[in-house]
Every structure is written in structure tokens, then in C-alpha cells.
Amino acid sequence: MKKYLVQSIIFSIYLLIFIPVNANDLDLEKYQTIKEIISNPHHQEEVEIYQERIRKVTDEPLPFLLKIIQSKDNFVFVRARAIHLLELYQNNTSQTALEKTIEDTHENTHIRKLAIRTYSKFSKIDTNRQSNFMKQFESDNELGLIVKNKQKFNRNSKHNQLDKHKLNKLNHK
């Protein structure tokens, strides 16, 4: 009897150490609902439509989207949609999550490439940090071409935005 008691105490301690109970754990029901919203394989809707549907579930979807992205149990297209949705939630947390996804050489190549596309659209982050981070992957066999294309596109789009702004100023004089 003592042996079983000792074993159960050791097992309980093991669980507490390796599987900590966190008060901030995600609401499983909300997680499942958000996952279902972006899991419909027949619809590829605009991010704003997904955002509207997700907002009905929670005002803070970022932790749920990050969990979907990190869970390798989810289908690639579901994780890809969650990555795409991060464009709407640009902050240090989402930036760091994308950076980790891009750096993870064991990650699905499609997911890493999509993370680069989304990361390159982040306008609310330090552009020096962004460009320095992206430079690491210019010579990467799998990611190099997309990194170079995104950097080229970003330079051109920023230039075009500036021109549009100047054009608007001229038109309003």
C-alpha cells in the first residue's frame, strides 16, 4: 500500500513539474471554435471576414491563433490560415512567433514561406530588425528566393506608396 502511495505522490509531482497548471491556459471551447472557423476547406475568404467571425468568439484571438500555428496536429492549411491572420495582429508576440516559425528548419516549408510572406507585410515593427532578420535567409535553399522577392517587393511598394502620397498632395493643392 505504501508503495502505491509513494508512486502516486511521485507521479503527481512529475505532472506538476512537467505539465504545469496555468491559470492563463486557453479556453478549449474558444480554441475549438476558432479552429473550426478557419478550418473550412471549401472557403478561402478575406482575412477581414475571418477576423469578424473570430471576434464574435473572443476579443483577444492572438493566443488562440498562435496555439493553432504551433500545433503540428493541425492540417497545414489551417495553420497557414492562422499565420495569414497574424497580419491583422501585428505586435511583438506575433512577430516573435513568425520569426520562430521561419527559423524552424523542421517546420513544413510551405508554412515557413507563408510566415515570411506574412512577416514581410508587418508594417508596425522595426524595419531594421525585420530586414536584418530576413537577410539570414537570403542564401537558404528553400527560403532564399521568396526572401529576395519579398524584399524587392517591399522596396517597390514603399516607393509606390510614397509616390501615391505625393500624388494625393499635388491633387489637393
Rank of each mutant, 00 (worst) to 15 (best):
N24R: 02
D73Y: 14
N22Y: 11
A82V: 08
D126K: 05
H106Y: 13
E138P: 12
Q7A: 12
I17S: 07
N156M: 10
H172F: 00
K148D: 06
V21P: 02
E107I: 02
R112H: 11
F137M: 14
I9Y: 06
I19K: 12
L86G: 02
Y119P: 02
E60C: 01
E107T: 05
E52D: 11
L114W: 05
M1R: 12
D73P: 07
T33G: 04
S94K: 01
T127F: 06
D140Y: 10
T58W: 00
T118S: 05
I38N: 00
F64G: 01
L114V: 09
H110L: 11
R117A: 08
R155N: 15
T33L: 06
K121Y: 05
R117P: 04
H42S: 11
T101G: 04
S120V: 01
H110V: 12
F122Y: 04
L85C: 04
Q95F: 02
N141K: 13
E87K: 07
P63H: 00
Q32R: 10
I111D: 03
E103W: 13
I111W: 07
H106A: 06
S157A: 12
F18Y: 11
E46R: 10
K35V: 03
K3E: 13
H42E: 07
H43R: 14
N40Q: 10
V21H: 08
T105S: 15
K121L: 03
Y14G: 08
S12K: 07
I17T: 06
R53F: 06
R79Q: 12
R79C: 08
L86Q: 04
I111R: 04
K2Q: 11
F11W: 11
T101Y: 01
L16R: 09
Y14L: 13
L145E: 15
L86S: 02
F11Y: 13
K30N: 01
F75T: 04
L88D: 08
M134P: 01
N128L: 13
